[in-house]
Design a protein around this nucleic acid. Structure first.
Length: 934
RNA sequence: GCCCUGGUGGUGGAACUGGUAGACACGCAGGACUUAAAAUCCUGUUCGCCGCAACGCGAGUGCGGGUUCAAUUCCCGCCUGGGGCACCA
């Protein structure tokens, strides 16, 4: 009997589907385990081998937990709103809903091929009204809430208005605009519009104005990565900043909770660090500097004082005497009023230049640029006049959009000063070498008047106190994180359940949800950068919001919907969210480190605060999967010919690389690096049918390069092909065998044979080609039990710590050893099959049934490790002389240190190496090693 | 530029808390079975040197230093691949 994986896999998949083997019941009597994959965006390209890496890992873990007796929720769905479908619609006129459904069908077929244990009855699609009704509902929760800084949680906005009626806003500083302040009397006197404008500054979902990348020629807003060097990626049209009305989520109010929450969840240290840095909490001070505008004209200087001060944010107020210049963002509102006539033109030119630059370009730019405004700030402590510059490296959105430049203590300031020949004041004496800035906090201050001799670290508090005393500054906690832009001028997203009445945003009634996304004739942008919904007269007539929600809206709460996917009364029944609770294991890529993961954490906290769920962190444990990269293959065409040169002939300089055009070829007809000439000639409808080849050793060898796996690079490998050739079980195990699940690596199909051979070898423990079934009910030997129990321990350990690659190799070792022992005993094989189940379910179910079991192996009990079978009495100790291993000595494990030393020193080889020299030190680590130091 | 992360044989990787570097596979080489092939099995395979041989010597985990009886593992400096940087998902 041969291992006929095609037949086995097809039969069992049908069987499992038929009897609902993966249907999950809300069985509260069992311990639960929630294992979740980050759901995919169903792109038109379908699944490539990179996608299933995490899915296989989570599938193995889910099945493992099921064998361990848990009720496992393991669902899958689709993040189905998104830009690509809309772009496709613009180009091909196909409605995004239609292309999305088609793509989902493709994804589903591909996923089914691999034999996942998803409960498809719980599938969610974020673009379906039954789902986005609740996305809209949660938006209304956000809209109707504010963050109470006293209780540190979200509360209904109605409680805030009640409070305003009584005490004005004295107890609730306004997060949106700190200058807003009113008494109860004033509040009561406000018009409805005025009240709503105030409340907008408190709401967790609020409307404001923000800058976007505006492309006039395309009439649309572009993402940062659609903008290259100031022009649109498509078409190369100019892109400028434009202010548009936008929705935002007030995530900054949750900054501290998001930071604190990190301590309660198991994310990698790297991930926590990234989120911490993103939130970017810093302690510093805001300092007001008086401004004077001066036109230096020879001897006399005409100076005019300016009314509003320049407020800077700094984390280092201790360096106040080292300030040699100020830098303000090119968007800073003071620029217009402080720029001197002489500098006006230069400033305007500089601002025009900056407008064409993205934030990222501005920060990444190595070349220093800037422009003097002509104005000076006055150091409040010593009256020194400090020139005010504009530079692109200061961003308007961070702090106050203005910094004080301290060149001796900050590298970027230092380069700026050197570049513009601004004299540098040294306030740290020898600690500054004149060449590089020194950001130390431990130096003693010099040239700092009342701070001279004070250690910088201690000076911070002194300066802060002084600033507050003088009324020109205050301590300030600052966050790098900004409120999250929550609207897009696009079609394919959730409509906002908002109507605009006389400039006031009025939420729809809950009973009016879902507000359905209407049909449109054209997916092109609306007037003035508005979304396509602005093109629909009926929509506009109802005064409905024309923006739609961004991609991350639906994904911010989907893990809750899986618990109760068909509920039409509520987004998720509280009883069910109490049972299923947090996601126990969440698997996905690091690319979501600061986007999706922060937003969903915030939404969870809001829903918790408002009492809709009982936990405030969504993901108890996060496992990041590495990215599978493509390995592209190149052929080298001699310029202007149809002749292709093999790589070796370029490497040995028979031909030069720059004589050729390197062309990517489809990796699927390259075996390793050897090109299949016939397949290449037939490729792309015979585009290369007339190709001639200059071979080496009768072969054409391709060049290779590791890059992102993508259709356009012809380096994608489709899992379907591999499943067809080797089977799902082989494919699953091979993906795991490739390496640690959290590490990125290029895909290489070559090694898959090894895993396939392993499964065949496993099969042959049960069946012989000629004799058929060969397993027996004989009693297992001690040796065989040792092999089994070592494997149980290893598989359990490795699966628990997500080390799936070493688990696969442990299976290989086990099967190799059992084959060597010619062990065909049920007592050994049956537990082995149960263990293999989570990794290779199809073959396991088949072998399980062959052993005569009636029930499914999916619900078998994971074997229990028993130490008594694996205990060793002695160990082959490696013996080092001065750290170099020279020999091995077998010593009983219960030998004492003295005995070990005696045995070791008596050893002939050890004596030879010691050459009669005296023993300096004897190191013995029980169960590990021996080191003799001489 | 900033933040995070990786770098070990020809290849993917193993070494879990500082304790035998290269498990397990791929590939390659040689052999067995076979008329032949496929399949399967066996042997070898980090590099260099000496050698009939090895249970022989030396080097070796991106590079350069350091700590230690002992470093792939800890520390400092550098080189380099990947991810993210707020409208791709």
């Amino acid at each position: 009997m041969e291992y006929d994986f095609r037949k086995i896999e097809k039969e069992w998949q049908a069987q499992w589907k038929q009897n609902g083997a993966y249907r999950v019941k809300n069985d509260f009597s069992k311990p639960k385990c929630y294992v979740l994959d980050m759901f995919p965006y169903p792109s038109g390209a379908g699944l490539h081998v990179g996608h299933p890496l995490g899915y296989i890992a989570s599938d193995i873990y889910s099945r493992y937990k099921r064998l361990k007796g848990f009720n496992v929720l393991h669902p899958m769905g689709y993040d189905a709103f998104g830009l690509p479908a809309e772009q496709y619609a613009i180009e091909h006129g196909v409605h995004p809903a239609k292309s999305t459904v088609q793509n989902i069908d493709t994804f589903r077929k591909q996923l089914d091929n691999i034999g996942f244990c998803y409960d498809w009855d719980r599938e969610v699609r974020t673009c379906e009204p039954g789902y986005y009704k609740w996305t809209q509902w949660i938006f209304l929760q956000l809209f109707n809430s504010f963050f109470n800084r006293a209780t540190r949680k979200a509360e209904p906005i109605s409680e805030l208005t009640a409070e305003f009626e009584k005490n004005g806003n004295t107890g609730h500083a306004c997060p949106g605009d700190a200058s807003i302040s009113f008494t109860a009397e004033q509040w009561k006197g406000y018009t409805e519009k005025e009240k709503q404008d105030v409340l907008m500054n408190y709401r967790l979902a609020f409307c404001g104005y923000g800058e976007v990348n505006w492309c006039e020629a395309l009439g649309t807003v572009l993402a940062n990565d659609e903008v290259v060097n100031g022009v649109s990626e498509r078409g190369g049209h100019p892109v400028v900043k434009k202010k548009l009305r936008q929705w935002y989520l007030r995530i900054t109010e949750y900054a501290d909770r998001l930071l604190e929450g990190l301590e309660t969840i198991e994310f990698s240290e790297a991930m926590k660090e990234m989120q911490t840095n993103w939130i970017g909490k810093s302690y510093g001070a805001e300092i007001d500097f008086k401004i004077v505008s001066g036109e230096s004209s020879g001897v006399s200087e005409q100076v005019t004082a300016h009314t509003s001060p320049l407020t800077v944010y700094t984390t280092r107020p201790d360096t106040i005497f080292g300030v040699d210049f100020m830098v303000i963002a090119p968007e800073h509102e003071l620029i217009e009023s402080i720029t001197t006539p002489g500098q006006k033109q230069a400033v305007e030119e500089y601002i025009t230049y900056v407008k064409s630059r993205s934030d990222r370009e501005r920060q990444a730019e190595k070349k220093i640029s800037g422009c003097f405004t002509g104005a000076y700030a006055v150091n409040p402590f010593n009256g020194k006049q400090i020139p005010i510059w504009i530079s692109e490296y200061v961003l308007a959105g961070y702090g106050t959009g203005a910094i004080m430049g301290v060149p001796c203590g900050d590298e970027r300031d230092h380069k700026f000063a050197k570049h513009f020949n601004i004299p540098i004041t040294n306030i740290i004496g020898e600690q500054y070498n004149g060449v590089d800035a020194n950001p130390t906090k431990d130096a003693k201050l010099e040239n700092s008047e009342f701070l001279d001799g004070v250690v910088m670290r201690d000076a911070i508090g002194i300066v802060n106190a002084k600033l507050e005393e003088m009324g020109i500054g205050k301590k300030k906690v600052n966050y790098k994180m900004r409120d999250a832009a929550f609207s897009r001028q696009r079609y394919w997203g959730e409509p906002f359940p908002i109507q605009w009445k006389n400039g006031v945003a009025v939420p729809l009634n809950e009973t009016e949800l879902p507000l359905l996304l209407p049909e449109v004739d054209s997916y092109s942008p609306g007037p003035e950068g508005e979304g396509p919904l602005a093109n629909i007269p009926a929509w506009v007539a109802k005064e409905l919001e024309t923006n739609t929600m961004p991609g991350y809206a639906g994904s911010s709460w989907y893990f809750l919907r899986y618990m109760d996917p068909h509920n039409t009364e509520t987004f998720c029944d509280r009883k069910l969210s109490d049972y299923w609770n947090q996601v126990d294991l969440y698997i996905g890529g690091t690319e979501h480190a600061v986007g999706h993961l922060l937003y969903s954490r915030m939404w969870t906290k809001v829903l918790f605060d408002l009492g809709h769920i009982g936990f405030d962190e969504p993901f108890r444990k996060l496992l990041n999967q590495g990215m599978i990269q493509g390995s592209s293959r190149f052929v080298y065409r001699l310029k202007g010919t149809q002749k292709f040169v093999s790589l070796g002939l370029i490497n040995n300089k028979t031909y030069e690389l720059d004589q050729t055009d390197p062309i990517r070829v489809d990796v699927n007809f390259v075996d390793g690096v050897e090109l299949d000439l016939e397949a290449f000639k037939k490729w792309r409808n015979g585009e290369y049918a007339n190709a001639e080849f200059i071979l080496e050793d009768g072969k054409y060898i391709c060049g290779s390069e590791v890059e992102k796996m993508s259709k356009s690079k012809f380096n994608t490998v489709n899992p379907d092909d591999l499943v067809d050739k080797f089977g799902a079980d082989t494919f699953r195990m091979y993906e795991m065998f490739l390496g640690p699940v959290d590490q990125s690596k290029p895909w290489d199909t070559k090694g898959i044979e090894g895993v396939h051979r392993f499964l065949k070898k496993l099969w042959r423990l049960f069946f012989d080609e000629v004799k058929g079934k060969i397993w027996t009910d004989e009693k297992a030997t001690a040796e065989e039990l040792k092999v089994l129990h070592r494997t149980i321990r290893k598989i359990e350990e490795d699966t628990e710590r997500f080390s799936f690659n070493t688990a696969v190799s442990a299976f290989m070792i086990c099967v190799n050893e059992l084959s060597d022992l010619k062990c065909h005993k049920r007592e050994i094989l049956e537990p082995l099959v149960i263990m293999v189940t989570s990794y290779a379910p199809h073959i396991s179910e088949e072998l399980w049934k062959a052993l005569g079991n009636e029930n499914s192996v999916l619900d078998a009990a994971f074997p229990t490790y028993e130490e008594k079978y694996t205990i060793e009495s002695s160990k082959e100790y490696p013996v080092s002389i001065n750290g170099k291993v020279r020999t091995n000595i077998n010593i009983a494990l219960d030998a004492t240190a003295e005995q070990v030393q005696e045995i070791t020193l008596a050893n002939e080889l050890v004596q030879k190496w010691m050459e009669g020299k005296a023993l300096k030190k004897f190191i013995f680590v029980k169960g590990k090693m021996i080191n003799v130091v001489i």
